[in-house]
Design a protein around this nucleic acid. Sequence first.
DNA 1: AATGGATACGATACAGTATCGTAATCACGA
DNA 2: TCGTGATTACGATACTGTATCGTATCCATT
Lengths: 201, 201
Amino acid sequence: MDATIFTPRAPGRPRDAETEARILQVALRLLAEQGYSRMSLDAVAAESGTSKPTIYRRWSSKADLATAALNTIQFAEPPVDTGSTVGDLTGTLENFSRSLLRPNGMSLIGTVLAEEAHTPELLTLFRARLVATRRGMLHAILLRAKKRKELRRAVNLDCVVNMLVGAFYARYLATSTVPPDFPRELVATIWPGIAAISKGS
Amino acid sequence: MDATIFTPRAPGRPRDAETEARILQVALRLLAEQGYSRMSLDAVAAESGTSKPTIYRRWSSKADLATAALNTIQFAEPPVDTGSTVGDLTGTLENFSRSLLRPNGMSLIGTVLAEEAHTPELLTLFRARLVATRRGMLHAILLRAKKRKELRRAVNLDCVVNMLVGAFYARYLATSTVPPDFPRELVATIWPGIAAISKGS
DNA sequence: AATGGATACGATACAGTATCGTAATCACGA
DNA sequence: TCGTGATTACGATACTGTATCGTATCCATT
């Protein structure tokens, strides 16, 4: 009885799913490379080997296409599990660092922030799909550690997450680079301040 | 013999210095509100009560005007000196929080990041004028503390600066808000990890 | 006499729509 | 099995209205 099982009749020529994927892929790249307002649908159509009407048949506006493109970003990285809290934090941050340093990773963040006033749905979606996911992973690691009594009771987990994640933004804003051992250094710097028992440095 | 002492001849009608200031002020506001590519010179001219040729007589291009506008941001806040390292850090971060929450403070950061590929001079200037200044103040506070033996010897000061500053970016990216006691909480969270002697929590 | 400012202009780019001929898929009938 | 028509998607192109950057022309000011 489920319409998704007995495929409902499709009267005419079916849409090409590959075309759809190609458009979204190009749109996401241009969004990151050039920012929202510089991303033109003419360019998206040309680079994806299609045409504007084909795009508008699928998405109702530029903003609609942009959010759909953002929505295709998949969070492929599985949760890290190294056995130790420090290792899990470091591993998760290393994944973060890689995705941030992907070409135009920071530009994409800049774009959604810059468009907050004009196209707020971009930031909303970015939050729900990427920011929240990443923060949730870090938060889960810290919460587990807290339940194991590895952390001081008074530690504000959100505050720690903000510092760990934000350090990458600050570093990039200052230098456009992030060294490979940055995640390890971050964890090493913050751990003595949040760990339950302060052993020797 | 110095031309700046004996005012040099002014051949024609002198420029109005107030006009210049008004243009820059409007340009900076629109840059933050709408982003670089949406900031139109027509709007700048209209809102500053002047016209485009008047703008182009002073700055050679849109990018030139935008960088000049960025360059007018003054770092009025004096260095904080409360007598204690924790107090200085907190006070400096509170200043930071205020400037960040000024309307469109984060949008401006987003714009310079998003424009990194297309108009890199914005990010370069933003770094030199604002990022470096703020980081320098925090770094100085930490370095002074280190010389007073208040910090562990192994602490990486840059790393701490990145975490303190970055936490604001991360928080804003996640929620678009920063609570008033955020600076205090940040310092409270990181201090036990970097202080030389760990006293009771 | 030389520069200031304002209006108007040219050139270009963009979002979104319309049209045209073609290709793909289905339903139906021979 | 083969063909025919109906229906929808497709790429290509052109178009409309608007926004934009940067410049030229004109009069006012000093």
